[in-house]
């Protein structure tokens, strides 16, 4: 009796280009989480190669992976994963704290700029508990942005949000993508995937479908047509 080797991903061969906006879809157990872990340099493939921005990730050790995450990747999670009892600004500063080349003045400036780009500059001193779900996710996006990553990886970023807030978040991703940032989101909602430019569907560890979305939905335009449900959520 030995450990059973499970191949969560098999024969996956794909390229994601700069400025792509990709949705990864699939049922649970389809291998999309493993794909995201490898893409996010949290894990390395047992076999095969993963090249990120010219770096062969498979050959790196734990510290080098951490360095790479710090420099090239921004994470957004379904459950926001902000540090509680820590202000929005300081949450956004967190990735820069692990970059010793940045002065605290620059750290603050860049964090405020990142918060501005998600429309939360005036809430920078609020604690996560004082923010709505949508606002918390926007803080998380600002945190993912602050280190100027080559790719933002979002794992079910709208999973805990209502429809309007989901569209809001997608509009931010679309805006960032038009600025040239590569975005990969994992979702199981086709509605959400429709805002991206490319949909990849996993099934049993293999790519089942991979197609370009001909006419992506425009989140910013739709946002104007969705009625505002609650007063607090829009400040």
């Amino acid at each position: 009796m030995g450990d059973l080797e499970v191949h969560a991903l098999r024969g996956v061969n794909m390229e994601i280009h700069k400025s792509d906006f990709v949705a990864i879809m699939g049922k649970s157990g389809s291998g999309k989480s493993t794909f995201m872990n490898i893409a996010g340099c949290l894990d390395v493939p047992t076999k095969g190669e993963y090249m990120l921005d010219g770096v062969d990730v498979g050959k790196l050790n734990k510290d080098q992976l951490a360095h790479l995450r710090n420099k090239k990747i921004g994470f957004v999670f379904q459950s926001f994963n902000l540090l509680s009892r820590t202000s929005a600004l300081e949450n956004v500063e967190l990735p820069l704290m692990y970059n010793s080349n940045i002065s605290s003045k620059e750290m603050k400036e860049r964090s405020i700029r990142a918060l501005e780009s998600v429309g939360l500059a005036e809430r920078s001193h609020h604690l996560p508990s004082q923010l709505s779900g949508g606002e918390q996710q926007r803080v998380a996006i600002a945190r993912a942005l602050v280190n100027n990553p080559v790719v933002i990886l979002a794992d079910e970023p709208t999973g805990n949000l209502d429809t309007r807030t989901s569209v809001e978040v997608m509009s931010i991703f679309q805006k960032l993508n038009t600025q040239g940032i590569t975005v990969i989101i994992v979702t199981h909602e086709p509605d959400i995937a429709a805002y991206t430019n490319r949909n990849i569907t996993f099934r049993d560890g293999r790519i089942q479908k991979d197609f370009i979305v001909e006419k992506p939905r425009n989140a910013a335009a739709e946002l104007l047509t969705i009625p505002v449900l609650t007063e607090e959520e829009t400040i």
Binding site: G40, L42, K62, D63, A66, H67, R69, N70, K71, F75, N81, L82, L83, L94, P95, Y98, N99, R143, N147
Partner: peptide, 16 residues
Amino acid sequence: TREIGIRMGVGARGRD
């Protein structure tokens, strides 16, 4: 544990 995960996710090394 969560906090440690977040910190590692954004680039904290083991020694940090």
